[in-house]
């Protein structure tokens, strides 16, 4: 069982996560955008477009214009999550010694690394709780929510809580052992998972989250980019420059129910427009 959890399941999780996300995005990109959905005032150049989308995605500006409280918690949640993820990669790779690179003593580096991680973890925990509370406190949002909406939050909360638990001073986690284990996974030479039940449960929950991720609304991670890119597209230029051919096949397919004015009134009723 531990063999499966430690040496097989992580690969399944990573595979499903990456393939699932790629599949979701590719299905979106396969569908055409028959008409520019430009939201005005529109960015004037490609650079402006990237800047505008980047700003909206990094600072959540549309939320800021609307619900300031939601903006605060949502932004804190995402930023602390990003910090935590980066912290995991860096902290585990350097075994908390990353700040010696900028001149700190090994002890100070560990202290800073652990403090930052703890602060980010607490921020993440608080913001997840705030978002959970908000979902139940605002009547419209509560009515709109399905079990899955709470489940998403609870799953991430479970990951965070098991992770934070390992930070408690009474709990000992052997970081070098974990690094060896994760390194083994990454280099495709898996070694047995350290028999620390806190770590195992944390790691297992992360794997479950990764499998769940591409099929849930958590794909808004990428959906937001695709959607924003769509509504910030440049409007068409007229007269149409030579060589530009927009996807002009829209809805009409087999069994067209609408007759063109040319065929209307002839009583056929079955004419396909066959665009």
């Amino acid at each position: 069982m531990l063999y499966f959890i430690g040496q097989v399941f992580p690969y399944i999780a990573m595979g499903v996560f990456l393939a699932g996300l790629a599949w979701r995005v590719l299905t979106w990109l396969k569908a055409p955008v028959p008409f520019q959905l430009t939201m005005f005032p529109a960015p004037a150049s490609a650079v402006e477009r990237v800047t505008a989308v980047g700003k909206q995605l990094c600072l959540f500006t549309p939320l800021y214009k609307g619900d300031r409280t939601l903006w605060f918690w949502a932004w804190i949640m995402h930023v602390s999550l990003a910090l935590v993820i980066v912290g995991h990669i860096v902290g585990i790779y350097f075994l908390t010694q990353q700040f010696t690179l900028i001149g700190l003593s090994p002890k100070a580096s560990t202290l800073l690394s652990e403090s930052l991680g703890t602060v980010a973890g607490i921020m993440l925990l608080l913001s997840l709780l705030a978002l959970f509370y908000r979902r139940t406190a605002i009547a419209e949002v509560k009515r709109l929510s399905d079990p899955a909406d709470y489940f998403d939050l609870l799953l991430i909360l479970a990951v965070v809580i098991t992770g934070m638990h390992m930070r408690l001073p009474t709990v000992h986690v052997d970081l070098p052992v974990i690094r060896t284990y994760l390194g083994g996974l990454l280099t495709l030479q898996p070694v047995p998972i350290p028999e620390n039940w806190l770590f195992i449960s944390h790691f297992l929950l992360v794997n479950i989250l990764m499998i769940y991720f591409p099929f849930s609304k958590l794909v808004h991670l990428l959906g937001s980019v695709v959607s924003r890119a769509m509504i910030s597209e440049a409007p068409p230029v007229y007269p149409t420059p030579a060589g530009v051919q927009r996807q002009a096949t829209i809805f009409a397919k087999e069994g067209q129910s609408y007759e063109s004015s040319a065929t209307r009134g002839q009583g056929t009723g079955s004419q396909s427009r066959g665009v």
């Binding site: 619900d67 939601l70 605002i138 949002v141 609304k217 808004h220 959607s227």
Partner: peptide, 10 residues
């Protein structure tokens, strides 16, 4: 597929 049902639009 992207809506997280945050309710900001209400």
């Amino acid at each position: 597929e992207t809506c997280t049902k945050c309710g900001n639009c209400a």
